[in-house]
Design a protein around this nucleic acid. Sequence first.
DNA 1: GGGGAAACCTGACATATGTCAAGTTCCTCT
DNA 2: AGAGGAACTTGACATATGTCAGGTTTCCCC
Lengths: 247, 247
Amino acid sequence: MAKPTDRTPPVSVAAPNCFSCQWRQRSEWCVLAREDVQILNEHKITSTFEPGQHVFRQGEPCNGVYSIVAGTLAIRKADVHGNAVLVRMRHEGETLGYRDFFAGGVFTTSAEALEPARICFIDKRSVRALLDRNPALGLGFLRRLASDLQKAEDALLMSSVLTTRTRMAHLLLSLKDRYAIAQDDGSLTMRLPLSRQDIADILGSRTETVARIIQALEKDGVARFSGRNVIMPDLDLLLDEIEPAGD
Amino acid sequence: MAKPTDRTPPVSVAAPNCFSCQWRQRSEWCVLAREDVQILNEHKITSTFEPGQHVFRQGEPCNGVYSIVAGTLAIRKADVHGNAVLVRMRHEGETLGYRDFFAGGVFTTSAEALEPARICFIDKRSVRALLDRNPALGLGFLRRLASDLQKAEDALLMSSVLTTRTRMAHLLLSLKDRYAIAQDDGSLTMRLPLSRQDIADILGSRTETVARIIQALEKDGVARFSGRNVIMPDLDLLLDEIEPAGD
DNA sequence: GGGGAAACCTGACATATGTCAAGTTCCTCT
DNA sequence: AGAGGAACTTGACATATGTCAGGTTTCCCC
């Protein structure tokens, strides 16, 4: 089998069931009545994506919303010169693309699988029908957008008042919640879902700078890196990074 | 009369009429039926604010939304150390505070009048009642939030890929649309609604850096500054700043 | 008009980070 | 296993920007 690349078309898979979907019940879609779940179930299209494949690309028309059944996606935004930032990550259970769906119908970001992913697509017409029948669904998206906006503003604030090293510490701490596993000796280990370039794009920096910060963190005993594997011997040391001493 | 300071309470004024309000018809509120405008009209509270006064402060509970009848506000966000960024500006006709209203009820930003302002407050109960009766109102806020989020992401991208000088050019160009007046000789003049500190907070920079950038822009003939007054002799020079030559 | 505070500017200096150019390691495919 | 390439690291250097300290201007209130 050929290696899946960015250009490999996504694979449609046997449809999972929206009724029994564990994620539906914890997301915006939990407000749907039984017959509306039926609509969802009939119209969704489920596909799988390998790491590196795009779910959608900046500039393409937005013809519906997506829901992640499994996997992690990177949401990137690029300017005209190709410079990109990694705006956020999206994980299983989250809905995707609703921002551009409500804003105007063209994707202003790209979504790329970081891990093997399984994703449901719900087309425009179905979403509109569901919104018409369930005002609470719209309010759910409203809440979600409001919280996304808060996070974006937090990121904006952080990017202008914190050093790159401190933002790196923030990033490690947020990744820890999802990816780290505790070892017997009290340390934490995790495998990063992100390349150095991805990290640089999140920090608004360069890979060389990321490498230097990693070097510095290792020197100070805060974390040890080996490729994408990280060992954090003491969580308190990381917490100290984001909460300056004596403050 | 004492000079209005940050602590001077806002002044409630004779209520303007929502039915005839020119802004209502161009905003989210335009979808309201006649009897709903009546609700708005009865429950809104209109106040005036002098420059420097706060409409609301980060951390306060959010008990409703605001609508700007006249004036310009600065929306700021601060971290625990008091570092602040100026997240955005809001002008007459815009609604205010809906983000925190939908997200959870605590203001995550502060709003401060930059010019004398007149602002209507619509309390929580009235907003909820209007939302219940007008699903389209919720969709209107949805669209607005989606576009705010887009702008926030644009700002995030710009802050990490553009130089401070280029962002300054972007800022001047966006302020021009609202504040600049064309002179007979083809140049543009405007009076900035922002202090150097405000500009630095927008650029994610320092007042000293802003002063240096101003110096550089004057040296290159792009703009001339005298306090808050700016003369832009040639718009093309400013546009060149944001679109690097030969690109 | 004068005093005082706030806003603003300037210079000298330190430093974080970008840039460029080699290396090295790691991974994948044949 | 070996070849090739991508990802990553390292070093030398340039530079934008922060920091600090001092000075000037502007504005407001008495």
